[in-house]
Protein backbone atom coordinates (compact mmCIF):
# COMPACT_ATOMS: atom_id res chain seq x y z
CA UNK A 1 0.00 0.00 0.00
CA UNK A 2 1.62 3.25 -1.13
CA UNK A 3 0.23 6.18 0.85
CA UNK A 4 0.86 9.88 0.29
CA UNK A 5 0.08 12.46 2.98
CA UNK A 6 0.09 16.18 2.20
CA UNK A 7 1.09 18.36 5.14
CA UNK A 8 1.49 22.10 5.41
CA UNK A 9 3.96 24.08 7.48
CA UNK A 10 1.83 26.49 9.54
CA UNK A 11 2.47 28.87 12.44
CA UNK A 12 1.68 27.35 15.83
CA UNK A 13 -0.44 30.14 17.29
CA UNK A 14 -1.02 30.35 21.01
CA UNK A 15 -3.41 32.44 23.07
CA UNK A 16 -2.76 35.49 20.90
CA UNK A 17 -2.06 35.53 17.20
CA UNK A 18 0.48 38.32 16.63
CA UNK A 19 0.90 39.72 13.12
CA UNK A 20 4.03 40.97 11.36
CA UNK A 21 4.41 44.75 11.01
CA UNK A 22 3.18 44.74 7.40
CA UNK A 23 0.19 42.64 8.52
CA UNK A 24 0.55 40.00 5.85
CA UNK A 25 1.71 37.07 8.00
CA UNK A 26 1.46 35.67 11.49
CA UNK A 27 4.56 36.68 13.44
CA UNK A 28 6.15 33.33 14.27
CA UNK A 29 9.26 34.61 16.03
CA UNK A 30 8.09 33.32 19.40
CA UNK A 31 5.70 30.65 18.29
CA UNK A 32 7.41 28.26 15.92
CA UNK A 33 5.71 26.08 13.34
CA UNK A 34 3.75 22.88 13.23
CA UNK A 35 1.50 20.80 11.02
CA UNK A 36 -2.24 21.07 11.54
CA UNK A 37 -4.09 18.64 13.82
CA UNK A 38 -6.09 17.14 10.93
CA UNK A 39 -2.86 16.46 9.06
CA UNK A 40 -1.26 14.92 12.14
CA UNK A 41 -4.12 12.42 12.11
CA UNK A 42 -3.54 11.81 8.40
CA UNK A 43 0.12 11.00 9.06
CA UNK A 44 -0.82 8.72 11.96
CA UNK A 45 -3.34 6.89 9.77
CA UNK A 46 -0.79 6.42 6.98
CA UNK A 47 1.73 5.00 9.43
CA UNK A 48 -0.86 2.55 10.78
CA UNK A 49 -1.93 1.50 7.28
CA UNK A 50 1.65 0.76 6.26
CA UNK A 51 2.22 -1.19 9.46
CA UNK A 52 -0.88 -3.31 8.79
CA UNK A 53 -0.64 -3.74 5.03
CA UNK A 54 3.00 -3.12 4.08
CA UNK A 55 4.19 -0.58 1.53
CA UNK A 56 5.37 2.89 2.44
CA UNK A 57 4.14 6.29 3.58
CA UNK A 58 5.40 9.44 1.86
CA UNK A 59 4.80 12.92 3.26
CA UNK A 60 4.77 15.94 0.98
CA UNK A 61 4.82 19.64 1.78
CA UNK A 62 4.60 22.65 -0.50
CA UNK A 63 6.32 25.57 1.14
CA UNK A 64 9.65 27.17 1.99
CA UNK A 65 12.82 25.11 2.47
CA UNK A 66 12.14 25.31 6.22
CA UNK A 67 9.15 22.96 5.77
CA UNK A 68 11.86 20.31 6.02
CA UNK A 69 11.20 20.55 9.78
CA UNK A 70 7.56 19.45 9.40
CA UNK A 71 8.46 16.61 7.02
CA UNK A 72 11.01 15.31 9.49
CA UNK A 73 8.45 15.51 12.27
CA UNK A 74 6.11 13.31 10.20
CA UNK A 75 8.97 10.91 9.49
CA UNK A 76 9.71 10.81 13.22
CA UNK A 77 6.08 9.74 13.68
CA UNK A 78 6.78 6.82 11.36
CA UNK A 79 6.45 8.01 7.76
CA UNK A 80 9.09 6.61 5.43
CA UNK A 81 10.20 9.54 3.30
CA UNK A 82 9.57 13.19 2.52
CA UNK A 83 9.07 15.36 -0.54
CA UNK A 84 9.50 19.10 -0.27
CA UNK A 85 8.14 21.22 -3.10
CA UNK A 86 10.19 24.34 -2.59
CA UNK A 87 8.19 27.39 -3.63
CA UNK A 88 9.83 29.92 -1.34
CA UNK A 89 8.14 32.00 1.31
CA UNK A 90 5.10 33.45 -0.46
CA UNK A 91 1.75 32.02 0.51
CA UNK A 92 0.14 30.21 -2.43
CA UNK A 93 -3.55 30.15 -3.15
CA UNK A 94 -5.32 26.78 -3.30
CA UNK A 95 -5.10 26.43 -7.09
CA UNK A 96 -1.37 27.09 -7.04
CA UNK A 97 -0.81 24.77 -4.07
CA UNK A 98 -2.74 21.97 -5.75
CA UNK A 99 -0.81 22.46 -9.00
CA UNK A 100 2.46 22.25 -7.07
CA UNK A 101 1.39 19.01 -5.36
CA UNK A 102 0.16 17.46 -8.62
CA UNK A 103 3.41 18.45 -10.33
CA UNK A 104 5.48 16.77 -7.63
CA UNK A 105 3.38 13.59 -7.67
CA UNK A 106 3.79 13.32 -11.43
CA UNK A 107 3.32 9.74 -12.54
CA UNK A 108 3.97 8.18 -9.16
CA UNK A 109 1.06 5.92 -8.30
CA UNK A 110 -0.23 6.12 -4.75
CA UNK A 111 -3.03 3.82 -3.62
CA UNK A 112 -4.26 6.35 -1.12
CA UNK A 113 -3.69 10.09 -0.84
CA UNK A 114 -4.54 11.76 2.47
CA UNK A 115 -5.14 15.43 3.24
CA UNK A 116 -6.49 17.42 6.12
CA UNK A 117 -10.05 18.67 5.65
CA UNK A 118 -8.78 22.23 6.04
CA UNK A 119 -5.33 23.70 6.48
CA UNK A 120 -4.79 25.06 10.01
CA UNK A 121 -3.81 28.55 8.93
CA UNK A 122 -5.71 29.31 5.71
CA UNK A 123 -8.83 27.09 5.94
CA UNK A 124 -9.57 26.93 2.21
CA UNK A 125 -11.27 23.51 2.35
CA UNK A 126 -10.28 22.62 -1.20
CA UNK A 127 -6.66 21.70 -1.89
CA UNK A 128 -7.41 17.97 -1.46
CA UNK A 129 -10.30 18.12 -3.92
CA UNK A 130 -8.20 19.96 -6.50
CA UNK A 131 -5.33 17.49 -6.24
CA UNK A 132 -7.61 14.43 -6.33
CA UNK A 133 -9.23 15.79 -9.47
CA UNK A 134 -5.85 16.35 -11.13
CA UNK A 135 -4.78 12.81 -10.20
CA UNK A 136 -8.11 11.42 -11.41
CA UNK A 137 -9.05 9.77 -8.11
CA UNK A 138 -12.27 10.11 -6.10
CA UNK A 139 -12.19 11.99 -2.76
CA UNK A 140 -14.43 12.53 0.23
CA UNK A 141 -13.77 15.05 3.00
CA UNK A 142 -14.47 15.33 6.73
CA UNK A 143 -13.40 11.71 7.27
CA UNK A 144 -13.28 10.34 10.82
CA UNK A 145 -13.12 6.63 10.05
CA UNK A 146 -11.09 4.80 7.42
CA UNK A 147 -11.03 1.08 6.67
CA UNK A 148 -9.10 -0.60 3.88
CA UNK A 149 -10.42 -3.67 2.16
CA UNK A 150 -7.60 -5.49 0.38
CA UNK A 151 -9.64 -8.64 -0.28
CA UNK A 152 -11.30 -7.23 -3.40
CA UNK A 153 -9.46 -6.70 -6.69
CA UNK A 154 -7.26 -3.60 -6.55
CA UNK A 155 -8.60 -2.86 -3.07
CA UNK A 156 -11.19 -0.44 -1.77
CA UNK A 157 -11.53 1.93 1.14
CA UNK A 158 -14.53 2.69 3.32
CA UNK A 159 -14.66 6.26 4.58
CA UNK A 160 -16.91 7.37 7.40
CA UNK A 161 -17.90 10.90 8.27
CA UNK A 162 -20.27 12.62 10.64
CA UNK A 163 -22.98 14.78 9.12
CA UNK A 164 -25.67 16.93 10.71
CA UNK A 165 -28.12 14.07 11.24
CA UNK A 166 -25.86 11.08 11.68
CA UNK A 167 -23.06 9.19 9.97
CA UNK A 168 -22.50 8.37 6.31
CA UNK A 169 -20.13 5.84 4.80
CA UNK A 170 -18.55 5.96 1.35
CA UNK A 171 -16.79 3.09 -0.37
CA UNK A 172 -14.21 4.03 -2.97
CA UNK A 173 -12.14 1.77 -5.22
CA UNK A 174 -8.37 2.35 -4.92
CA UNK A 175 -6.60 4.51 -5.83
CA UNK A 176 -8.58 7.02 -3.82
CA UNK A 177 -8.14 10.11 -1.66
CA UNK A 178 -9.58 11.32 1.62
CA UNK A 179 -9.49 14.60 3.51
CA UNK A 180 -9.51 13.67 7.19
CA UNK A 181 -10.48 15.34 10.45
CA UNK A 182 -9.02 15.32 13.92
CA UNK A 183 -10.64 12.51 15.89
CA UNK A 184 -9.83 9.92 13.20
CA UNK A 185 -7.22 8.55 15.59
CA UNK A 186 -4.98 9.70 18.41
CA UNK A 187 -1.65 10.67 16.83
CA UNK A 188 1.46 9.38 18.58
CA UNK A 189 4.31 11.53 19.79
CA UNK A 190 7.50 10.79 17.88
CA UNK A 191 9.69 8.28 19.68
CA UNK A 192 13.40 8.80 20.33
CA UNK A 193 14.42 6.22 17.66
CA UNK A 194 11.88 7.88 15.36
CA UNK A 195 13.52 11.26 15.83
CA UNK A 196 16.97 9.82 15.15
CA UNK A 197 15.72 8.13 12.00
CA UNK A 198 14.09 11.38 10.89
CA UNK A 199 17.31 13.32 11.29
CA UNK A 200 19.00 11.10 8.73
CA UNK A 201 16.04 10.52 6.44
CA UNK A 202 16.20 11.61 2.84
CA UNK A 203 13.99 14.49 1.79
CA UNK A 204 13.57 14.91 -1.95
CA UNK A 205 13.47 18.57 -2.84
CA UNK A 206 11.46 19.45 -5.94
CA UNK A 207 12.02 23.00 -7.15
CA UNK A 208 8.87 24.55 -8.57
CA UNK A 209 7.85 27.99 -9.79
CA UNK A 210 4.16 28.48 -9.08
CA UNK A 211 1.68 30.29 -11.30
CA UNK A 212 -0.45 32.63 -9.20
CA UNK A 213 -4.07 31.55 -8.82
CA UNK A 214 -7.11 33.84 -8.78
CA UNK A 215 -7.29 34.40 -5.03
CA UNK A 216 -4.77 36.84 -3.63
CA UNK A 217 -4.25 37.56 0.05
CA UNK A 218 -3.87 41.29 0.66
CA UNK A 219 -3.51 41.42 4.42
CA UNK A 220 -4.52 39.86 7.71
CA UNK A 221 -6.48 41.51 10.46
CA UNK A 222 -7.45 40.61 14.03
CA UNK A 223 -11.17 40.20 14.62
CA UNK A 224 -12.43 42.78 17.10
CA UNK A 225 -12.91 41.52 20.54
CA UNK A 226 -15.22 43.93 22.28
CA UNK A 227 -15.96 41.81 25.30
CA UNK A 228 -15.85 43.45 28.67
CA UNK A 229 -13.65 42.15 31.43
CA UNK A 230 -15.09 39.28 33.42
CA UNK A 231 -16.91 39.84 36.71
CA UNK A 232 -14.96 37.91 39.32
CA UNK A 233 -17.43 36.06 41.53
CA UNK A 234 -14.90 35.12 44.16
CA UNK A 235 -12.03 32.88 45.11
CA UNK A 236 -12.09 29.13 45.80
CA UNK A 237 -15.00 27.32 47.39
CA UNK A 238 -16.29 30.55 48.93
CA UNK A 239 -17.46 31.65 45.50
CA UNK A 240 -20.10 28.88 45.30
CA UNK A 241 -23.12 30.88 46.55
CA UNK A 242 -22.38 33.74 44.12
CA UNK A 243 -21.98 31.22 41.29
CA UNK A 244 -25.29 29.54 42.05
CA UNK A 245 -26.97 32.97 42.21
CA UNK A 246 -25.73 33.66 38.67
CA UNK A 247 -26.76 30.21 37.44
CA UNK A 248 -30.24 30.84 38.80
CA UNK A 249 -30.40 34.34 37.36
CA UNK A 250 -29.47 33.18 33.84
CA UNK A 251 -32.05 30.42 34.13
CA UNK A 252 -29.96 27.26 34.00
CA UNK A 253 -31.09 26.25 37.47
CA UNK A 254 -34.83 26.11 38.00
Amino acid sequence: MEVLVCVKRVPAPGAKVPLTDDQTEIDTRYLGHTIGPHEECAVEEAVRIVKAHGGSATVLAVGPAAADEQLRYAIAMGADRGVLVDVGDAELDPEATAAAISHAVGDTRYDLVLFGTESADASHYQVGIRVASALGVPIVGGIKGLELDTAVDDGAVSLRREVADGVEVYRLPLPAAAAVKEGLNLPRYPSMPGRLKAKKARIDVVPYTPEPGGLRKVRLRQPNDDREEAIVLGHGADAAPAVVDVLTQIGVIA
Binding site: A230, I231, G236, V244, V246
Partner: peptide, 28 residues
Protein backbone atom coordinates in the same frame (compact mmCIF):
# COMPACT_ATOMS: atom_id res chain seq x y z
CA UNK B 1 -6.54 35.28 37.06
CA UNK B 2 -4.56 36.26 33.96
CA UNK B 3 -5.64 33.29 31.83
CA UNK B 4 -7.11 34.59 28.53
CA UNK B 5 -10.40 32.78 29.09
CA UNK B 6 -10.75 34.31 32.57
CA UNK B 7 -10.36 37.76 31.07
CA UNK B 8 -12.75 37.16 28.18
CA UNK B 9 -15.44 35.33 30.17
CA UNK B 10 -18.56 37.06 31.51
CA UNK B 11 -17.93 35.63 34.98
CA UNK B 12 -14.89 34.11 36.60
CA UNK B 13 -14.01 32.22 39.75
CA UNK B 14 -10.35 32.18 40.73
CA UNK B 15 -9.50 28.85 42.27
CA UNK B 16 -8.84 25.14 41.94
CA UNK B 17 -11.41 23.20 39.90
CA UNK B 18 -11.47 20.48 42.54
CA UNK B 19 -12.34 22.91 45.31
CA UNK B 20 -14.71 25.17 43.40
CA UNK B 21 -16.85 22.60 41.56
CA UNK B 22 -17.65 20.36 44.54
CA UNK B 23 -18.66 23.50 46.45
CA UNK B 24 -21.00 24.54 43.62
CA UNK B 25 -22.56 21.07 43.49
CA UNK B 26 -23.04 21.16 47.25
CA UNK B 27 -24.59 24.61 47.15
CA UNK B 28 -27.05 23.57 44.41
Amino acid sequence: PEAPLVRRANYAVIGDVHEVLPAIVKEI
